[in-house]
Design a protein around this nucleic acid. Structure first.
Length: 297
DNA sequence: CAAGCGACCTGACGGC
DNA sequence: TGCCGTCAGGTCGCTT
């Protein structure tokens, strides 16, 4: 499910159950997800207090006392759910090691708070494209998964002048450049399609055409930056997008999928006022692109 | 180096 | 009903 707005929504769902609590028990139901869990994961984190649940791009970053960080990526199908002690109908509550597990429940975090509240946070991931690793706070950003990430597409982090420098000389189509996590970190297939539609830019346009000869951003690159910021902000506001059966950590649904202008709308009319175009679907570097051939140039 | 593509893995869905 | 092909929100690693 997860591009940046979905991960941010998950973060907000997990924070109330996790922050301030102690990780009483960490259960790994298999030795790996996409990659093997880092050695010492349980020993290093069990018994520690959770200070905060943060996010960098599509990565959740859970800070523990003792300067440890647990980093989680949800891949394509990863999700977290939160259960409260005492709400399970299965005999023995969630203290049954196996009793309440669903298929593909791979990681369990049992969390206790000083006031007696207890939660189980469960990571479920059918395809296991997700992964987790942990390490000391001081060096966690040296990890190759994090060290190469570009700017967040939110607020003032994303800057047209910086982007122009990164786009200069690139022959690849815009779609590819925007999916490149080392340039902008957090966009994925949906929000790239949506941002390009908002900016009236073709996903096939050569990236470097948004940079002037003097290296400064064109007017259209400024438009693109505005479109990216806006679509990401609105998606976060809406609680992300809920596709298929994905649920938020609290079991509720995101709503942004109802605001898609092009994603998943092949053959339907373009939503731009006065545009007579139809949304087309085509494949770029192996992934579906949705765009209006009439108004996106 | 940039760019493109297969691989990883399971489940849902449509067509026959 | 069952089988088969296609598709899915991501990222890595290999080849040009």
């Amino acid at each position: 499910m997860p591009e940046l707005p979905e991960v941010e929504t998950v973060r907000r769902g997990l924070a109330p159950a996790m922050e301030g609590g102690t990780l009483d028990r960490l259960t790994l139901n298999r030795p790996d997800l996409r990659f093997a869990f880092t050695p010492g994961l349980q020993d290093d984190l069990q018994g520690r207090r959770i200070l905060s649940v943060g996010r960098r791009a599509k990565y959740l970053m859970i800070d523990f006392d003792g300067d440890q960080v647990l980093v989680c990526h949800l891949g394509m199908s990863g999700s977290f759910r939160v259960e409260t002690a005492g709400t399970q109908t299965t005999p023995g509550d969630f203290h049954h090691p196996r009793g309440v597990l669903a298929a593909h429940d791979h990681v369990l975090l049992d969390i206790g708070h000083d006031d007696g509240r207890r939660f189980r946070v469960t990571y479920n991931d059918a395809r296991r494209f997700g992964f987790m690793f942990h390490g000391p706070r001081a060096t966690i950003f040296d990890n190759p998964h994090l060290s190469g990430l570009g700017v967040e597409p939110t607020g003032n982090s994303l800057d047209a002048v910086d982007l122009a420098r990164r786009f200069a000389g690139r022959a690849a189509p815009l779609k590819s450049a925007l999916l490149d996590q080392s340039v902008i970190a957090g966009l994925g297939n949906i929000y790239v399609c949506e941002a390009l539609w908002r900016a009236r830019l073709s996903p096939r346009r050569k990236t470097a055409t948004l940079v002037r000869a003097d290296g400064q951003p064109t007017r259209r690159l400024h438009d693109l930056v505005d479109a990216i910021r806006a679509v990401i902000a609105q998606a976060i506001e809406a609680g992300g997008s809920t596709l298929r059966d994905h649920r938020l950590a609290d079991g509720s649904l995101g709503y942004f999928q109802h605001s898609f202008a092009v994603y998943g709308r092949e053959g339907e009319p373009c939503k731009r006022p006065a545009c007579r175009g139809t949304v087309a679907r085509f494949v770029q570097s192996g992934r579906s692109t949705f765009a209006c051939a009439s108004c996106q140039r």
